[in-house]
Amino acid sequence: MSEGPGISPAATMRAMVTGDRDRWVKLLMFCCASVSFLGVLLIFLFIFRESLPAITKVGIPKLFLSTDWRPASGHYGMLAFTFGTLFTTVAAMIIAAPLGIGAAVFIDQVAPEKVGRGVRRVIELLAGIPSVVIGWFALTLLVPFIRSVTGSSGFGMLAASLVLVVMSLPTITTLSAESLRAVPVELKEASAAMGATRWQSIYKILMPSAREGLIIAVVLGMGRAIGETMAVQMVIGNASQATASLLQPGSTLTTRIVQDMGEASGVFRSALFAQALMLLLLSVFLIISIRLISRERKHA
């Protein structure tokens, strides 16, 4: 916007408001987009910069590929927590994926419309419950239950995984229901016309047609599970060991960060940022896999 001499600012403004409204709106939208884009970029750069001291001083193998986490004596291996994140997430998905997709089939195909809508609303409501509430609930009910059944402390990977099932279920169910609904009704009618039973239609026609959508629903559910912090931190036990035992206490990347960030400084703090970097990489990986799946769907 070049201003010639002799034109008052007020006149310029008036001209812009009346004549160039489009351009102003465009500019505003551009600003909005830039702010979010730059925000994300800044977070990436910041986390990378903060984790640099740990990467250079500890070294990538000892930082990312070691399970030896003893910050007081200078051991900052995060593998136990990366493993904890993946382990609890996968364990949660093993339960949540069939449960969520099953619920979606029920909502979309089996239930009468009113019932289906009711179930759907309740599951959506589950997504709105703050994670600290779910965590507290699990701490007072789930952990003592696991304790009484197994004789362990109750805190551990199993409790964390079950909490993640609850946290990721709404995402998986609603998205699965969407993708089932998106299957053309002709397919279903054709299947019925061929004499297929309801279950044959669902298993042979509906589920394969919605396959990519269902996978994306589960992947997004995983994203939710990987990032969950508060509820998991309350029940996982926050031990620093790597464990594949469901009844042993452990940690995930997020719970380790929130557990230790209060008092951490220097390389210790930087090592926690490196864990944040690891989390980001996991999310990026998930997003890329979603893109790949969607592309496959378009080509199919």
């Binding site: 986490w69 003592p144 304790r147 402390s153 109750g154 805190f155 036990g237 926050n238 031990a239 620093s240 060991q241 464990t243 042993q248 206490p249 557990q259």
Partner: peptide
């Protein structure tokens, strides 16, 4: 490494009070 970490005296009492071992 297998130790459960808790963030307050209250939680400590809760865990020890309810876990027999």
């Amino acid at each position: 490494g297998s130790a459960i970490q808790c963030s307050s005296n209250g939680v400590m009492r809760e865990i020890v009070g309810s876990t027999s071992n």
